[in-house]
Amino acid sequence: MNWSWTFFFEYLTNGFMFRGAWTTVWLSVISMTIGLGLGVVAAMMKMYGNAAVRYIAEFYIWLFRGTPVLIQLIIIYTGLPQLGIRLNVIESAILGLALNEGAYLAEIIRAGIMSVDKGQNDAARSVGMTWRERMYLVILPQATRTIIPPLGNQFNGMLKTTSLASVISMEELMRNAQMLAQINFRVLEVYSVAALWYLLLVSIWGLIQQRIEAHYEKPFGPAAAISPEAAKELKKAMQKAGATKV
């Protein structure tokens, strides 16, 4: 067996790996945020636009969901310069990941909006809200509740999809692991550490997602719980009625 704990712990505490992981985090957050914006716009265009607008949104979703994100990244970074469009590594990575994510999120957001009861739109109109106000104040906040779980799933995926940006030499976790592997050829150790980093990031995200879900679930939580006073009264009454264990 040729496993070196020394190398393993060396990589685990390596600042280069840590910086790679940090790049993975901010690259994911920025790409996701832009993707979310694109997704909302594309979903709106598809749901409420006229035929031309709808076609543009559908074409975008079809194109970016229909092709591998790896090809999208390579075309943006390596292919577009042929057309005179030159983006640096970071711009290319963010653009590619965001465009891809936006296409998926558009469908998730659309489903979220459709899940909001039609009566909500009537009620919002009846108090005199414009389309924008209805969306912003009534429909989207409620759609968010439905959207958050799949959105969290998407972000979980995003944390790992960023590794594909290593092929355009984006120095994130995967790329840095590759570089370290080429120095000492301790392939198993270095990629194990990279895998652990991904696990850690995803786990932290899982905890954050739980918090966010709880926040949006709060208004929809279990119906009125019995008040403490009423609970006390009930306990007394049951004792009086002869219950030994309450």
Partner: peptide
């Protein structure tokens, strides 16, 4: 307007 199903904003 008041609706049959109330349509309060649940959030």
């Amino acid at each position: 307007m008041v609706f049959q199903n109330f349509n309060l904003f649940p959030h």
